[in-house]
């Protein structure tokens, strides 16, 4: 049985890894004023952060339309026996809703399971990877979907941000709102919990924030899979990945993921974080 795993670009899955695992990434839309870009397709992360830093219009993001999902499901439904489509938390984005509509429009040809990961960025990415591995092992669709749901519950994502400004402007600040308005320069650390953005803590300096991320990852051990994500500070991400190597089972390397435009519009430049999959109890 061939099961195709589909996710969206808010997973921040590196495209080469997605390709290797056979995961299709549906691009979210990024809008600068009247200009619309397909996340990761016609707007690279570098170009995006450049515009974010120097442009005067604040970017907005929107989910792929139901019609776009319909077309993708029809395209992949031809060669696959079933599709498992796992997406960013429905509390943060309408992507899940769009995918459900798209699946209905696609008709009865190929069964489609749409999963709400309640996660974002590599929290979602980790779950998509787990689902794709199950699919590549030849598991039937129910099992792949069950893996996607189970991995979603075990995955967490917690970035340290340079500023809350972007999260607030984009309307995704959720319960981390309490951190706003501090008169001091702080590095807010957020976590996606119960499908929404919550506060994990705040630190004054980057090195303390990175140490906090590392400690939080260790507190969540044992870990099955781990990724380090960054918007602009690659060196910090690489160092963090190196420090956390010992948390992973032998032979596994942390995934280094660039935060793409869709998530980057909400976390801003200078964000560094961890997405990890806790081992099954």
């Amino acid at each position: 049985m061939t099961v195709k795993v589909i996710t969206d670009s808010t997973s921040d899955l590196p495209s080469d890894l997605a390709e290797r695992l056979g995961i299709e990434l549906v691009p979210a839309n990024v809008h600068f004023g009247d200009e619309t870009f397909k996340d990761g397709r016609d707007l690279s992360a570098d170009e995006f952060y450049e515009r974010l830093a120097h442009g005067d219009t604040f970017p907005r993001t929107s989910q792929p339309s139901p019609g776009e999902f319909m077309e993708i499901y029809k395209r992949f439904g031809k060669d696959a026996d079933a599709i498992v489509s796992i997406h960013v938390s429905s509390k943060l984005s309408g992507t899940y809703n769009s995918a459900v509509q798209g699946a209905q429009e696609a008709g009865d040809g190929c069964p489609i399971e749409v999963v709400d990961s309640q996660q974002a960025s590599m929290g979602l990415g980790m779950a998509a990877i787990a689902a794709a591995r199950a699919a590549n092992d030849g598991s039937p669709v129910d099992e792949v979907a069950a893996t996607a749901r189970d991995a979603s519950k075990r995955s967490v994502c917690f970035p340290a941000l340079d500023t809350l400004e972007y999260l607030e402007k984009g309307g995704r600040i959720g319960k981390a709102r309490a951190m706003l308005g501090a008169l001091l320069r702080v590095k807010p650390i957020i976590i996606i919990r119960d499908g929404e953005v919550q506060e994990l803590g705040k630190e004054r300096t980057l090195s303390k924030a990175l140490a906090r991320l590392e400690q939080t990852a260790r507190d969540l051990a044992p870990v099955e899979d781990l990724s380090v994500l960054y918007s602009t500070a690659q060196d910090d991400a690489l160092r963090l990945a190196q420090n956390l190597q010992d948390l992973l089972p032998d032979g596994k390397e942390p995934v280094i993921a660039r935060i793409g435009p869709a998530i980057g519009a909400h976390v801003g430049p200078g964000a560094v974080g961890i997405g990890l999959l806790r081992a099954s109890p």
Binding site: S62, Q63, S65, P66, G67, E68, G94, N97, Q101, E105
Partner: peptide
């Protein structure tokens, strides 16, 4: 209806398209 389906934006757009 077709135009709305392909051009739907945001949650509200999706409901509108339906």
């Amino acid at each position: 209806a077709r135009g709305a389906l392909m051009g739907a934006r945001g949650n509200s757009g999706v409901i509108l398209s339906q």
